[in-house]
Amino acid sequence: MKRTVLMLAVIAGVAIAFGVFSGSGRADGIQIGAAVENFSLPDLNGETKSLNELKGKNGAVLVWLSAQCPVVKGYNDRILEISEEFKAKGINFVGINSNATESLDWVKSNASEVGYKFPILIDKNNVLADKFAASVTPEVYYFDAKNVLLYHGAIDNDRSGRNITTQYLRDAADSALGGKAISTTRANAFGCTIKRAEKQ
């Protein structure tokens, strides 16, 4: 009896450790203030690129994108503008596409149509999205030069772009580069759910 109870406790412990009992079914992701390990993914030409080789001298912004999401389409002009502005500040944008429903050709033609001037990495089977617990597009993760997560969430507080009152990502970078504390480190917004691969 004692042995059975012990075995059940061990099984439950292992299950909790692997997030089996997690309500969302996904890990909690990267926490603000935590450093992310370097990772590598193929770009649109099939060449493997790592975070460490793509980031700028002051860090990087990972932005989860989609070729079909209308919210991303609504943000594209702002993404292009902010990515150029950030590049000048030593913070490089890196696009990630984790949508199982979007083919490489589609992502490629969309990227050239939009005119993204930063690399886009293909996250097959949403491995990176799962690791980061990325859920929607667009969703950004802003890291400093040591890969420490400083801000996670929405780019600003208005999908339409007409009534923006808070520029979450810009404010976070301005504070970090100015040596000040970031007032908002996490902001959610409505967006398209990342279309994850069906689990076998």
């Binding site: 929607v136 959610n188 759910t193």
Partner: peptide, 8 residues
């Protein structure tokens, strides 16, 4: 609390 805002 843990809703990311993804739809639906």
């Amino acid at each position: 609390k843990d809703w990311s805002g993804g739809l639906p």
